[in-house]
């Protein structure tokens, strides 16, 4: 807490509250319209548990992949002078602007059974990603990775490179400097990026249904279950949405407190 609390200008406060209401109201709508009387019955169905479990597993795996590949990528973008770095940075943001369904089609064209790479995966190793849980993870990682890369790159740019240089002058190898100096410095950025990445992966719909298909237990994640439930039984779609909302809020809030901390 700062000792002196500045007066908040109304000019900022009014749009801020409108913005907040805009984001919160749809969730309030879900809560108001939820069929509370049948909620327990709806939740007890096997499909809900299955879809929720699958969603959590896939989003977490996708985040792990994004961390392993995304942190080095962010480092490369922020700290190296490799040619084509600007172009690479532009490409990293492509999945952000690409409609996820298009992303799913693109993934099919590359990793599908007849895809550019997929045909060799299939012929040489017998691996076929579409319609598998691994396919869901791939689709989610594709869509969610930019969130992590951009957050980590931002953190790296904000961090002072002189610490790494100092470590280097003291005889640390570049790898040691990265591990012992760079990573701890940008840890909050990595944590924030992972949380964003995980949340995006959890809500992923378009790329998943296009690339991985929809089958209960293997590829039907919560967003897919919600979509199909909406076509037949809007009540159960509301329940599923509430569950997804509740689980994600609980996880995000608890992680936020633990990892990112409230720096006040």
């Amino acid at each position: 807490m700062r000792a002196v609390r500045a007066r908040v200008p109304v000019v900022l406060l009014i749009p801020a509250f409108i913005g907040l209401a805009f984001l919160v109201l749809p969730m309030v709508g879900l809560v108001i319209r939820a069929p509370w009387s049948t909620l327990v019955d709806q939740l007890a169905t096997a499909e809900v548990g299955e879809a929720l479990r699958l969603s959590l597993i896939c989003a977490t795996s996708a985040t792990a992949i994004c961390l392993v590949l995304g942190v080095p990528l962010a480092w490369m973008l922020a700290r190296t002078e490799l040619p084509g770095r600007r172009v690479a940075r532009a490409f990293v943001t492509v999945p952000l602007v690409l409609p996820p369904v298009v992303g799913g089609v693109a993934l099919l064209l590359v990793f599908g059974r007849r895809g550019v790479l997929g045909q060799y995966l299939d012929a040489w190793f017998g691996i076929s990603l579409p319609f598998t849980t691994a396919g869901v993870v791939v689709a989610e990682a594709f869509v969610a990775m930019p969130f992590l890369v951009i957050a980590v790159e931002g953190a790296l740019r904000g961090a002072d490179p002189r610490f790494e240089e100092a470590a280097a002058t003291l005889g640390a190898s570049r790898w040691t400097a990265f591990r012992r100096v760079t990573l701890p410095t940008v840890a909050p950025g990595i944590a924030a990026g992972s949380v964003l990445c995980w949340a995006r992966a959890l809500g992923e719909f378009g790329a998943t249904i296009t690339f991985a298909g929809n089958y209960p237990g293997t590829t039907q994640t919560m967003p897919l279950a919600v979509y199909l439930a909406l076509e037949q039984d809007p009540d159960s779609a509301t329940v599923l949405s509430l569950v997804l909302l509740a689980v994600s809020i609980v996880i995000l809030v608890s992680l936020r407190d633990r990892w990112i901390g409230t720096r006040a």
Binding site: L108, G112, R114, F131, G213, N214, Y215, L228, E231
Partner: peptide, 21 residues
């Protein structure tokens, strides 16, 4: 024992067109 349950008939057919099923 389908590998996928698609959201409409065209999406289902597309999976055959692309050779995925």
């Amino acid at each position: 024992k389908p590998v996928t349950l698609e959201q409409d008939v065209k999406a289902t057919l597309t999976k055959v067109k692309l050779g995925e099923v």
